[in-house]
């Protein structure tokens, strides 16, 4: 009971902040709403007893990536009104299309899991007793999901090398 009250409050807040992120004109305020959104998502993770994921969500997204957003927004001083910017229409259409595909995918998963409750339960075995959330995530990352994990880290490395090459004008 209490859990569902907390969940629906958080869900409402997340959607509200999400709408504010895309509708607010002031770019810095947008970024702040995004931070609030990420913090609420982290609280959902806490509700699911995934405290490691919650902390990483705050550390990486709210504390790391969005600080860089804020940096860029403050430095480039966006005065241009988004409504009059050229080339916005195709982007908006592509965005809506992508969101629709995402929504369809999520509903498909939801319908599928509702009709096959057994397969969802099998996908998430209960954690062995005496093993924390952090240990579980670590073990999974380095056993079952080793290849995706390494691919993701390679991607980050490539991005880093690319950034350095872009920054070095003399080379």
């Amino acid at each position: 009971m209490l859990e569902s009250i907390v969940f629906y409050t958080l869900a409402t807040l997340i959607i509200g902040f999400g709408v504010l992120v895309v509708t607010t004109r002031n770019t810095v305020h947008c970024v702040l709403f995004l931070v609030a959104n990420f913090l609420c998502v982290a609280m959902i993770y806490v509700l699911l007893a995934a405290e490691f994921l919650a902390i990483i969500q705050i550390l990486v997204y709210a504390g790391g990536i969005v600080v860089l957003y804020l940096f860029v927004v403050m430095l480039v001083n966006l005065q241009r009104q988004p409504a009059t910017a050229p080339g916005r229409r195709p982007q908006a259409r592509a965005g809506f299309a992508l969101a629709a595909v995402m929504l369809a995918e999520l509903s498909a998963i939801l319908v599928f899991s509702a009709s096959h409750p057994a397969s969802v339960a099998a996908a998430a075995p209960p954690a062995p007793s005496g093993m924390g959330n952090t240990t579980m995530v670590g073990l999974l990352l380095y056993s079952d999901y080793l290849v995706p994990f390494e691919v993701a880290s390679m991607l980050l490395l490539v991005a880093m090398v690319g950034a350095i090459i872009l920054a070095r004008k003399d080379a």
Partner: peptide, 19 residues
């Protein structure tokens, strides 16, 4: 059981006040 990470993430939020 994530005490230390919690502290690191809290510190990273504190930066916002200054910016």
């Amino acid at each position: 059981n994530v005490g230390l990470l919690y502290l690191v993430s809290i510190t990273s939020i504190g930066v916002y006040g200054i910016i």
